[in-house]
Amino acid sequence: MLIQSAKSGDKRAFATLFQHNYPFLVKYLIKVTLNPDLSEELAQETMARCIEKIHLYQYKSKFSSWLISIATNLYIDQQRRKKREKSWQQEEENFRKLKWQMESRNEEWNDALSALGKIANDVRIPIILRHYYGYSYDEIGEMMKLSPGTIKSRVHNGLLAVRKELRLNDETERLER
């Protein structure tokens, strides 16, 4: 009903839809980017894109899934454009900031998040979509415009990389003691 009204140009319906989905969208983006500032920026861009493309929404998936599909592609495109200027140190700085923000709110930070932050975006995204949000390989493939086979192998290799990072962290901690 809300989507139908938004499609016919009702700004209040659009605003209500966005307000309902905003926390879900931003939290998804924080998990994927590990950067709260960038997540808010991307969420705004996603909503702008959604206003432009709402006529293309065919009710095949949930509206929230359609939103995160737009957000994922915006993030991948943005990272591709920034690839040259971006460095590993910058990425690490991003998740350190998130870690600090969470710890200052007395919220738990675990090493798996640091390990996720160290793997490539195009590997981190399918892991989160698969093992946190529960999307199928086909659905993730559709979102990321890749074949389900590629997604499956990225998820598997990504999990191996996270496991390696976690073991490294454990060893470092043991040596520090």
């Binding site: 905003y22 926390p23 931003v26 939290k27 924080i30 998990k31 709260p36 998130l98 923000q101 969470m102 709110r105 919220e107 738990e108 930070w109 675990n110 090493d111 798996a112 998040l113 996720l116 892991i127 989160i128 093992h131 946190y132 996270v162 976690l166």
Partner: peptide, 15 residues
Amino acid sequence: EIELGLESVEKSDLV
């Protein structure tokens, strides 16, 4: 572990 980590982000009041 990943699930636990992401759940802590989900439950946080960052948004």
